[in-house]
Design a protein around this nucleic acid. Structure first.
Length: 306
DNA sequence: AAAGAGCCCAACCGCCACGAT
DNA sequence: TATCGTGGCGGTTGGGCTCTT
């Protein structure tokens, strides 16, 4: 019943030699990587395909930035970890040129310890001593509010990832590149301090999101009618919570407004017209453009992180 | 200088999702 | 519908390096 081993017996394991790296690089440079399973033999490597893929994605790929993480990167990782938990690939998709493995290592060896030292639980991102004192006096209220905000953001982000996956699926039928444009303004807010203003079109495709609309890049704000439709759709689709204030319009890129931006951005995405996020009106970090459909694959399977 | 402890990170492992058949 | 092959993900390991005693 057991699984067949992914690698044949007798294949080399352990650290890669410069010669092996060279072979792999040269092969991919010439032929690209079609089937990883078949690649080792063609490239003349005594490795399994999985090992080759790992070596390429985590080390040899030309678009990898190595070296120390910047302060901004550190902050981004912490913020995204608070949102997403240990979803390293999702976190990596927001950090240009960093691999999930690198981020995971950095978190485990540096950030986790640093947060713990600061008295912050690296799992919940709440102060360790504040676990049961949310209603206590002093600064407890502020902390509890921050924790609630974080939890709320996590729910939004999880829902967003789910919708992203769904839309990515649909986009395959209509416009294959659409998923690449599907970006969260909230996530963008982590990497930019520029205010972001969403703009809506009055010709919203409802109730089902459609990706094949050729609507003009309108600068109209949401009309009341549009807003009511959006609210209805969001709630009926289970993507907003009963009683939740659903703000529609604009938001700033500050961290404090991130929750609102998630809501706004998400609802905007429900409408499914990605072309209404031109760079000029919704600045998006370079990393955001690198989100892949596969990133969303796992996200769909994972429920809310909190 | 030597030994042990701790740290770092590349690589491995097992599982899962998805597409093809 | 079931099965298989493949790629991707997160958790974990272990060898080498650095620091401390």
């Amino acid at each position: 019943m057991g699984r067949s081993p992914c690698c044949e017996e007798g294949l080399k394991k352990g650290p890669w030699t410069p010669e092996e790296d060279q072979k792999l690089l040269a092969y991919i440079d010439r032929n690209g990587h079609g089937s990883w399973r078949a690649l080792p033999a063609k490239a003349g490597l005594q490795r399994c395909g999985k090992s080759c893929r790992l070596r390429w994605t985590n080390y040899l790929r030309p678009d990898i930035k190595r070296g120390k993480f910047s302060l901004q990167e550190e902050q981004t990782i912490i913020q995204l970890h608070a949102l997403l938990g240990n979803r390293w690939s999702a976190i990596a998709s927001h950090l240009p040129k960093r691999t999930d493995n690198e981020i995971k290592n950095f978190w485990n060896t540096h950030l986790k310890k640093r947060l713990a030292k600061m008295g912050i639980d690296p799992i919940t991102h709440k102060p360790s001593s504040d676990a049961v004192s949310a209603t206590g006096g002093g600064g407890g209220g502020t902390t509890a509010a921050a924790a609630a905000t974080l939890s709320h953001m996590a729910q939004w982000e999880s829902a967003r990832l789910e919708a992203e996956a769904r839309l990515a699926r649909e986009s395959k039928m209509h416009r294959p590149s659409a998923a690449a444009h599907f970006q969260s303004p909230a996530a963008a807010s982590f990497s930019t301090s520029t205010p972001i203003h969403l703009q809506g079109s009055s010709s919203c495709p409802l109730p089902t999101p459609r990706l094949d609309l050729e609507s003009p890049t309108s600068t109209l704000t949401f009309s009341e009618k549009t807003e009511s439709i959006v609210r209805r759709t969001a709630f009926s689709d289970g993507l907003a919570w009963p009683g939740e204030q659903l703000r529609i319009g604009s938001f700033s890129g500050s961290a404090g407004a991130a929750m609102g931006s998630l809501g706004d951005g998400f609802v905007e995405m429900l409408l499914g017209d990605f072309d209404r996020f031109p760079p000029a009106t919704a600045p998006i970090s370079p990393a955001m453009g690198e989100r892949t459909a596969t990133t969303t694959k796992k996200a769909r399977a994972i429920g809310p992180a909190y």
